[in-house]
Design a protein around this nucleic acid. Structure first.
Lengths: 225, 225
DNA sequence: TAGATTGTTAATCGATTAACAATC
DNA sequence: TAGATTGTTAATCGATTAACAATC
């Protein structure tokens, strides 16, 4: 490991999945090597940034040649913590919970939702091959199965109470799909999937575009008259 | 408007929804005024940052008093483009599409999904009160209803083709829930909801925590022996 | 009034980009 | 070899934080 570790910038962490995704798709096409320029071109970024981002994985590239593709892919996965599987419990088997339970792509990202909980579990008791338990069983099963991660997909009004229940049972980290901002102890990890944030960016851009459309016609450019 | 506009930093844009959310909840409790300190304390940020973020709304606060709460809330909504409703079509009425169609919270954020499309529309033809049409009707309805925004919730493999179909039909902006990175013309707005990115942050933190746990016991601190 | 809070300018911090020697 | 690409250091850029005069 050439570079001393140090804390990895959050933007780097958020870009790594896109590199990995591309590497895996190229690997499927039979490629065995890759350079920063390849990655940068495909993602609309600079080669320097890609190179710096990849440094945190500890993989050493060779001048003129680039990186060994499979080695790099494995190193990114390892760095992200995707080579070890995190078993998780999901709470809230509504529409969104059902979608998350049914999505098969998480296992490639080190996530395995092993069971779900709901105040009113569906009588058939199963979604996407995962069993649905009543909330009353949560604490006991968290302990017995040594679960550290909870996926929160309940209605907003229940978010805080359910999060407290999860934490009391021993859950360490919460992937929060509700709009609620959870107030938790500093040793608890919370990662919010905030659709409002995403909508803010999207609709502000849309509003700007709308404004531009109206601005073009009204005032004819004086330099051309 | 005291400050000249200029482009708003993206981080500011992403923080505005959290201010608005808090303001609305305080408004429901009957408060009528608010200071940057209140907001900052509640959100674990600095008052200076809140003040600078709010500047883009054009609302003027009064020293010692703070801001008029309803005025500020309305101004943020206006700035984000949430006071005008964007009508959208959703494509892909699977589990995730169903969840998005059924969620009632989007209307507060200027989004109204008015209909959905699928290659194999459910025979009952309706989810969350929204009609489901076959894909073949998409282009015609986009034009007739003047739709600018598409919500993409199809399987990854179909993402690119469906996006092209949307754009060809006249859609301007895509809220992309698939893991695919869409290659589109620069005038098309794409906002990705990237769960892999979110999982990267989450599982890297979990991996770090796991590593810390093992590092504590093995090497006893030499300064205490 | 005095103290709290504003708007804004200057200083700091962190991340991105550019430059470049080393090298396969 | 010559040219492309690496790892790393320095320069730039942008966002956050600190400082402070103005003021209700």
């Amino acid at each position: 490991m050439a570079t001393h570790p140090g804390p990895v910038p959050a933007p780097t962490l958020r870009r790594l999945p896109s590199y990995l995704r591309l590497l895996r798709s190229w690997q499927a096409e039979g490629r065995t090597g890759v350079s920063c320029t390849h990655l940068a071109d495909a993602l609309g970024q600079t080669a320097t940034q890609v190179r710096k981002d990849l440094a945190c994985t500890g993989v050493i590239g060779r001048p003129k040649v680039g990186y060994d593709l499979p080695e790099l892919a494995v190193a990114i996965e390892k760095f992200l913590g995707w080579s070890k599987t995190n078993e998780a419990f999901l709470v809230g088997a509504g529409h969104l919970g059902t979608a998350l339970l049914s999505y098969s792509g998480f296992k490639a990202h080190g996530l395995d939702i092993v069971a779900a909980f709901d105040i009113a579990p569906n009588p058939r008791g199963e979604i996407g091959g995962k069993q649905i338990f009543p909330m009353s069983k949560l604490a006991d099963l968290v302990r017995r199965m040594g679960i550290h991660l909870g996926v929160l997909a309940v209605p907003e009004a229940a978010a805080h109470d359910v999060a407290q229940t999860m934490i009391a049972a021993g859950i360490d980290a919460i992937w929060n799909f509700t709009p609620a901002r959870l107030l938790v102890a500093p040793n608890i990890i919370v990662e919010n999937v905030d659709l409002a944030q995403s909508l803010a960016v999207l609709s502000h851009k849309l509003a700007e575009k709308r404004a531009q459309r109206w601005q073009v016609a009204p005032s004819p450019d004086p330099t051309h008259t």
